[in-house]
C-alpha cells in the first residue's frame, strides 16, 4: 500500500505526515491523542543518514513530548550496502536508533511498528523488531532472503526449501510466517484504525515473542531453550 493511502486510512486526509525523500515523519492526531509517526518509503535502504534521521525524531519526542506514542511505518530493503557507510559505522548508527526506540519504551512511550510494504533484515531489527510490538498489512513482505537466494547460499535445492517451507515457517518469507514465529503480533486485515487502536491499548510492553512463537507453533524451541537456561 502507498504510504499516502495508508496515512489517509489511518488518520484522514489532513494526516500531517510528510515525505522528505524516502523519510516519513509527522505528528498525527488519533482519537484525541497526538502520535509521532516515523517511517521510510520506496523500500528505502537504511544507511547511517537514515538511521540518524529516525533517531533524531525519537529523541525529539522523548525530550519534548514525554509519553507520546510512536508509530513506525516500515518499508525498507534492509541496510544500505556501501563501503562508506561501513567505514562510518553503520552498525553503530543502527544500534543508536535501536537504543533510542528502546529507551522510549522504557520511559513509557508506546512504540508500535507497522510493516506496510516490505521489511528486510537489518532495516527491520532496529525498527519494528525493537518496538513494543510489530504489526503488518496482509500484502506486506517480510524476509531475510527469498528462497532462490537462500538456495544459492545454503546449496540446498530450491524445490526442497519450498517443500520444507510449507510446514516450517523459518525457511520462507511471508507475513504469516512471522506471525507464527511471534515476530509479528498480528495482521491488520480490514479496519486499520481498529488495528492501531487495539495495538495502542494491548501491545505487550515486555518481550513475549518467543512465548507467542511457541503457542502459535512457529518457533517451538526459542522459549523452551531460554527457560532451560534459567533452570540449569
Amino acid at each position: 500500500m502507498q504510504w499516502t493511502l495508508l496515512a489517509e486510512k489511518l488518520f484522514g486526509l489532513d494526516h500531517g505526515i510528510s515525505a522528505q525523500d524516502d523519510f516519513l515523519s509527522g505528528t498525527v492526531q488519533f482519537e484525541g491523542a497526538a502520535l509521532t509517526v516515523i517511517g521510510t518509503t520506496n523500500h528505502a535502504p537504511i544507511g547511517v543518514e537514515m538511521a540518524l534521521k529516525q533517531a533524531r525524531r525519537v529523541l525529539d519526542t522523548l525530550a519534548q513530548h514525554p509519553g507520546r506514542a510512536i508509530l513506525l511505518l516500515i518499508d525498507t530493503q534492509g541496510q544500505l550496502l556501501r563501503r562508506r557507510d561501513e567505514l562510518l559505522g553503520i552498525n553503530r548508527a543502527m544500534a543508536h536508533l535501536g537504543c533510542c526506540i528502546d529507551l522510549a519504551r522504557r520511559r513509557g512511550h508506546r512504540v508500535i511498528g507497522l510493516v506496510y510494504d516490505q521489511a528486510l533484515s537489518g532495516g527491520f531489527i532496529t525498527s519494528g523488531l525493537i518496538a513494543d510490538a510489530c504489526y503488518a498489512l496482509p500484502e506486506a513482505e517480510i524476509r531475510v532472503m527469498r528462497i532462490p537466494a537462500m538456495a544459492r547460499v545454503t546449496k540446498i535445492a530450491e524445490e526442497r526449501l519450498a517443500e520444507l517451507s510449507q510446514t516450517n515457517p523459518v525457511f520462507a518469507p511471508g507475513v504469516q510466517n512471522y506471525v507464527a514465529m511471534g515476530g509479528v503480533q498480528a495482521v491488520w486485515k480490514h479496519d486499520l484504525q481498529a488495528g492501531l487502536r487495539s495495538a495502542l491499548r494491548d501491545a505487550p510492553t515486555t518481550d513475549r515473542r518467543s512465548r507467542d512463537g511457541q503457542s502459535r507453533g512457529g518457533r517451538a524451541l526459542a522459549y523452551a531453550v531460554a527457560q532451560q537456561v534459567l533452570a540449569a
Binding site: I125, V144, T154, G183, R219
Partner: peptide, 26 residues
C-alpha cells in the same frame, strides 16, 4: 549475523538478544 539456513527465526532471535541485552544493561 543471522544464520541463513533458519533466517526468519534467526532475525527475530537477534532482536530478542538485543532487547534482553538492553534489559541487563539498564
Amino acid at each position: 549475523g543471522v544464520r541463513l539456513h533458519e533466517a526468519n527465526a534467526g532475525l527475530i532471535a537477534v532482536s530478542e538478544v538485543m532487547r534482553a541485552l538492553l534489559d541487563v544493561r539498564h
